[in-house]
Amino acid sequence: MEHIAVWVAAFLTLGIVSFLYKDNPWYKLSESIFVGISAGYWFVVLFWDNVHGKFWTGVFPPEEYDAAGNVITKDPDWMLWIGALLGILMLARLVPKFGWISRWPLAFIVGSTAGLYLINYFSSNMMRQVQGTIMPLFGMWQTDPATGEVMFQAFSTYDVVGNLVILIGTFTGLVYFFFSKEHRGVFGATAKVGIFFLMITFGASFGYTVMSRMSLLIGRVDFLFGTWLGLIK
């Protein structure tokens, strides 16, 4: 079985790689298998995790036992039926005549996402990042636990330069994103510095992405030449 599995994986891997030459039936076959299997995989996983795990076990709680072996009875959560009903209404979109019904679950999903994002992004992406930027630049006043004396602990040049870069980069980057004022004069010059920082960010992110893709590629080449052909020991 292991032998067949390796050959199946090699066949599918080479099928996808063959696209580098040109679009061909082998690639299309592998791509179709990928599409079908991905859709099926999430179909099953979400059924067991969300529909069964949340709805079914909530409405029909399974019997649980305490340490003494007594049955713990859990009350069914009937409110979960509303979630299931909204979910079923979502499927109405499959029938064009009843597609309008899916607006209700869609409104629920959009409202939930808006509410969650408003809070989560504001606290993590906004407040925490601002908090991280407003920091001591050159050093910190610290109390010596032995003597109780308050001393100034200076940062190393490396850290000071780094802190200044973060402060200037974040501020100028934000100035660039401020489009309510024309980018001219001092404001324009500050925005220009922001562009430089954004370009460094894009370049670094690009390099990082390339390297992660390369590592995946190395993994596949290692599989083909090692696991499949046995050329790499």
Binding site: D49, G83, F108
Partner: peptide, 10 residues
């Protein structure tokens, strides 16, 4: 909970 269930149906 509803969100998890509706997301699965989506």
């Amino acid at each position: 909970d509803w969100f998890s269930i509706v997301a699965a149906f989506a």
